[in-house]
Nucleic acid binder design. Structure first.
Lengths: 90, 90
DNA sequence: CACACATATAGAATTTTGTCAATACGTTTA
DNA sequence: TAAACGTATTGACAAAATTCTATATGTGTG
């Protein structure tokens, strides 16, 4: 994994609002509209953050009719964990 | 740990150049001047990145005479790992 | 003490990121 | 089919991050 790809993964965690979104998703899968209720910015901004979270692999989206349900991806987190393990044990 | 503090920790990993610096530090403690040789930016820019890495707790600096030796902090990485564990197991 | 060297800080320029309003797209429902 | 609803995209703007040059600070050396 190169430097750029690693940075993309961790982009998920370097913004305060995205950490808050992840906190909300810890309670389980949530639809975008429910996340929006808890955040203090507009719908396009949420959409932007969800894109970054999905690109990082830490979050996954599932479309169902009009709604998109987001949840935390254990596999995505594992990738991040592998990097930290690697960094620690050398 | 609040959202802001978490974001500060992970700032270490969300820039390509900082990932490269961490990679260099994986080989063991290195002085700033040696890191600078490997990077393709100026000395003040390195200084800036090292400040962010130290503030995140992922890197620690040790001053010796004119030189500053930087190394990876296992404790810092553990903090990041704790957060990822927390995120995963809910 | 004066100079050289390693690093840090200040301030400015540039680039990237976060945000919003407007609008497009896709799906459901009347 | 038209309207309503949830989400994504576009484009503009503001804020933050990255980078540079110039300079300051601190430390060792002649």
């Amino acid at each position: 994994m190169n430097e750029k790809q690693t940075a993309v993964i961790f982009k998920a965690f370097c913004d305060e609002n995205r950490i808050k979104i992840l906190k909300l998703l810890m309670g389980g899968e949530k639809c975008a509209c429910r996340l929006l209720e808890e955040m203090s910015f507009t719908q396009p901004t949420l959409s932007h953050h969800m894109k970054i979270l999905c690109e990082s692999g830490i979050v996954q989206g599932r479309k169902e009719g009009k709604w998109v349900y987001y949840s935390i991806s254990a596999d995505g987190i594992s990738k991040a964990q592998e990097y930290l393990d690697f960094l620690k044990n050398e």
